[in-house]
Structures are given as C-alpha cells and as structure tokens.
Simulated scan of single mutants.
Amino acid sequence: MDKIDRKILQVLQADARTSLQDIGQAVGLSPSPCWGRIRKLEEAGVIEGYTVRLNPQALGLNETVLVQVTLDSHSDNTLEKFGETLAAIPEVVEALLVSGEYDYLLKVAVRDTRDYERFLRERLYQIKGIRHSQSRFVLRTLKKADLPLGL
C-alpha cells in the first residue's frame, strides 16, 4: 500500500459516497486507475465495506453505556457462545474481548436509564455464565475519529 492508496482511504473515510472523479482529483489519478486501486483494497480486505454514520440522539438513543463483563468460564466454547449471543443483541453496538480485570467491554445504545434497566433484565442478565458486570454511562463523547493512516 503506497501513499496514493492511503490518500484514497482517507478520502473514503471522510465520505464513502465521494465520486470516483473527486477521489481521483484528490489523489492525482483519473477515475479508472482510482477504481482499480479501490477494488484491490477491497479484495485485500483493507476496505471491509461501506456504511453510513447515524446520529444516535436523532434516533432516540440518548444514552451510551459502557459495560464491563466478567464470565465464569474462559473456555473457547464459552467465549464463542458469548460472542454469538452478543452479536444477536441489537443494543450492543460494539463488543471487545479485553485484557485486565474484566473479560469484555460492551458499548450499548439505549433510549434512557429505564431502557437500560430493561436491557439488563431482558437481554444481558439472561446470558448464562456472567459472573459480574459493571456499567458506566457516557456523559459526553469528546472524540470520534477515523483510523490513522499515517500519510
């Protein structure tokens, strides 16, 4: 991956709907070779897909909660099943297996504290094998950033 590829990625991270013409202009290529580079980045797995960023508050999801979870067991089977279960819970927008005192860090999007209580009772606490959890409500997001590309 060269500097032009990184610049293409930077343009796409800023706005994945940018036209090939505009991307080419930004990196000094015509649309055809620009498209070839993008296709190669997709095939190599560098570009995993295209998405749209949604405003959680505009959708009524006013609270973000970070939940630390510890499991009773750490067998491969337990971790795999826990991950599959989390994937099926729509309120869990991100789940990370982490090192340290807890096993997982979950990012949960809910309407309000009452909705979070419902999430705990009806979703999270229904999962077998959770030993302990701790919740932290996000007061304000100070930074959201794209991946650093080291241009």
Rank of each mutant, 00 (worst) to 15 (best):
R6Q: 08
D115S: 11
Y116R: 05
P56G: 10
P56Y: 08
P148C: 10
Y104S: 10
R17M: 08
I8L: 02
A109W: 15
P90V: 14
G24D: 01
D112L: 04
T51A: 15
R140F: 03
R6S: 01
V93I: 15
S135T: 08
M1T: 08
G150S: 09
K7F: 01
N77D: 02
R53E: 13
E117S: 12
S73E: 15
V108D: 00
L124H: 03
K128M: 08
I127A: 06
I4V: 15
D5K: 05
T85L: 10
A44R: 13
V93H: 13
A58R: 14
P148E: 15
L86A: 10
S30T: 15
N55S: 15
Q25F: 09
A58P: 04
L120Y: 05
A14E: 14
V138E: 03
I23S: 03
V46N: 09
P56E: 08
R140E: 06
L9K: 04
V11G: 01
D22E: 12
A14D: 12
G49P: 05
V69W: 07
L20M: 03
E122K: 14
L151E: 11
L124R: 04
E48V: 15
G129C: 03
D2W: 05
Q134H: 12
T113V: 10
P33E: 09
D146K: 13
D112R: 01
I23F: 07
L41N: 04
L120G: 09
L66Y: 11
E117H: 11
K128D: 12
R114M: 04
L97C: 11
V98C: 13
L12F: 05
G129L: 09
G45L: 09
R37Q: 05
T85H: 10
R53H: 12
Q13E: 07
V108H: 00
P148H: 14
I89G: 01
G60I: 04
L59W: 10
L12M: 07
R111W: 00
D112A: 00
A44V: 02
L20T: 01
I4D: 04
G150K: 08
T64M: 12
T78M: 11
R118M: 07
E43C: 07
V108S: 00
G129H: 04
L149D: 00
F119Q: 04
I38Q: 08
K81T: 08
L20D: 02
Q126C: 11
E94A: 12
S99A: 11
L41D: 01
S32R: 10
T70A: 10
L147R: 13
E117V: 10
K3H: 12
N62L: 06
L71K: 12
D15T: 09
G100A: 06
R39I: 10
Q13C: 11
R17L: 05
E48L: 15
L97I: 13
L96S: 11
T78V: 13
L79I: 09
T51C: 14
R114W: 05
Q25N: 10
